[in-house]
Design a protein around this nucleic acid. Sequence first.
DNA 1: ACCTGAACACCGTTCAAGT
DNA 2: ACCTGAACACCGTTCAAGT
Lengths: 204, 204
Amino acid sequence: VTDRKRQILDAALDLADAHGLAAVSMRAVAARVGMTPMALYPYVGSKAALLDGMVDRLLGELSLPDRTLDWRERLRLVAHGARRLARQHPAAFPLLFARPAVTPDAVRVVDSLYQALLDAGVPARSVDRVERMVSTFVLGFAVSEVNGRFSPGSVARAERINVAPEELPGHRALQPWLEPSVDWDAEFDADLADLARMVESVVG
Amino acid sequence: VTDRKRQILDAALDLADAHGLAAVSMRAVAARVGMTPMALYPYVGSKAALLDGMVDRLLGELSLPDRTLDWRERLRLVAHGARRLARQHPAAFPLLFARPAVTPDAVRVVDSLYQALLDAGVPARSVDRVERMVSTFVLGFAVSEVNGRFSPGSVARAERINVAPEELPGHRALQPWLEPSVDWDAEFDADLADLARMVESVVG
DNA sequence: ACCTGAACACCGTTCAAGT
DNA sequence: ACCTGAACACCGTTCAAGT
């Protein structure tokens, strides 16, 4: 039973990767595995459950760092792994924001972060909060990137958009520093460094 | 023309608030404003453009803090405003993650954050990066909340989910501190305080 | 300029039926 | 136990036509 389900989820993920989430219909997935749409139901239950299954399959691809590494390195590895996953599966990845971490692989990721934060010296009573803070940022960054939400700020763009320059003192003050293109790899690393400093400084 | 468009966007947002994003169909929106589905096209162009229009309407509801306030207070006000918006429009709010900030109201929000970060002493060359970091976290928190992604960690839940306790050293170590219910208002404030400390400490 | 109505090519899911 | 096929109540969008 479970083998057939995996085959169905793989087909759904392939379709999402190739043609976007909108192309993941019960009919299209069924055609790809050579079945009738109705034949999927015993395996995946519903369209919503199929999407949940894709999320779980995604998390299974995320490899977790060895406990012997430095906590900073572990945070970095998990964060970079998540971002890599987003680039590999840009259509399916944003689904991670939609559902709680209630699958085995999701719990394992959370546990890995718990360990890293404990080793960083975060007080036990703050670890679950800080874990949510870190994972929310990493997820948010990766989703923003693949969804095209990020784009460098620019005065020229702001003006094209029909906002008077007097309304935008911040953009004007920053004019020389708002660059037309951004190195997102470097930005992500700088963010993670700031985040690690913040983690170190949490005392309560 | 623009008056009719507003009426259409209001109807779409009302439908999303009342029955979820899936209920926002061209046919349903049209019915709500007393038109034929096809009559919407001259005003909104397409279904995707209608969703973009809803995002812009949402941002227009976000009130921006006065420049005379302390930068910490301004950050707090914008963040709480965004979270309140998410609660008022839980179905439509996650759309904010889908598209770049390329509307007048979006640029105004970014500018407000630029000003606050400059006043906080963030170096000019880092302001756009830190703005993306802060807005990504705030958006991510609010979306996680309305989508039900957040849920307190718990050993009991982890076990119910069929992961062996030996695999979860982090959960075991934190057992006494993983509470069954979380005060999300307090958590958001604690996160913002940590974020503000981080902002203060950015020097490059 | 603004709107309608029929049509096309799709959806997820039900149900009764087949083997 | 596993799968099929017809049907139901929907989609977004096109096109030609009305006023």
